[in-house]
Amino acid sequence: MEQQLPLFAAALAPADQQTIREALTLLECQLREPGASFTSSNAVRDWLRLHLAPLEREALSVLWLDNQHRLIAHDTLFLGTINTITVHPREVVKAGLKHNAAACVMAHNHPSGEAEPSKADRLITERLKQTLELVDIRLLDHLVVGGMEIVSFAERGWI
């Protein structure tokens, strides 16, 4: 199956698109390897930067994980505007159950390039964590991508 390219890659030359496709495939394969934890890997951050950093609108992606925290699937569940996004917890839960996920890592971008989470980011993360717990899906982290910088809620003790 051919790796889906991030939205920004459509403007690149075919050779550059192929390079990005190969990089994403390698990162994703590494994350599916037995014993490769998705919660502390630099590959996760690299993968998210490739997917989210160049977007011109906010997007919320969820990385669905099995019990060993290996990647099952990834979904971009919501697209917003240049500075806001509406997230519906019901749709997040629905996607997690569809993939039979045991855990997840959420990520969204800030097109401004500033990775510092907003108060709204913190509030929706807490709401999503509580909602996912009702169906036994652990929210391991929420990462905010702003350019090349990534802020982790888990590293800050917010999850």
Score class of each variant (00 low, 15 high):
A15V: 13
D16A: 15
D16N: 14
Q17G: 07
Q18P: 00
I20R: 07
I20G: 03
I20C: 08
I20Y: 10
E22R: 14
A23Y: 05
L24R: 11
L24Q: 10
T25A: 15
T25K: 12
L26I: 11
L26F: 10
E28R: 15
C29N: 15
C29G: 12
Q30T: 09
Q30R: 15
L31G: 07
R32N: 08
E33L: 15
P34H: 08
G35F: 05
S37K: 10
F38Y: 13
F38H: 12
T39S: 12
S40P: 02
S41Q: 10
S41N: 14
N42I: 07
A43Q: 14
A43R: 14
R45K: 15
R45W: 09
D46F: 05
W47T: 02
W47Q: 11
L48H: 10
L48T: 06
R49W: 03
L50W: 07
L50P: 08
L50D: 13
H51L: 14
L52M: 05
L52N: 06
L52R: 07
A53D: 05
P54C: 04
L55S: 08
L55T: 08
E56V: 14
A59S: 15
A59C: 13
V62P: 06
V62K: 02
L63A: 09
W64T: 00
W64D: 09
L65V: 03
L65M: 07
D66M: 05
N67D: 12
Q68L: 03
Q68C: 06
Q68P: 00
Q68Y: 00
R70Y: 01
L71Y: 01
L71H: 06
A73D: 14
H74A: 11
L77H: 03
L77S: 02
F78K: 06
F78P: 01
G80R: 05
G80C: 07
G80M: 05
G80Q: 06
G80D: 02
T81R: 08
T81C: 01
T81Y: 00
I82H: 12
N83P: 00
N83F: 01
N83V: 04
T84M: 03
T84K: 14
T84L: 03
I85G: 05
I85M: 10
T86S: 11
T86E: 08
V87T: 05
H88M: 12
E91Q: 12
V92L: 09
V93L: 11
V93P: 00
V93I: 12
K94V: 04
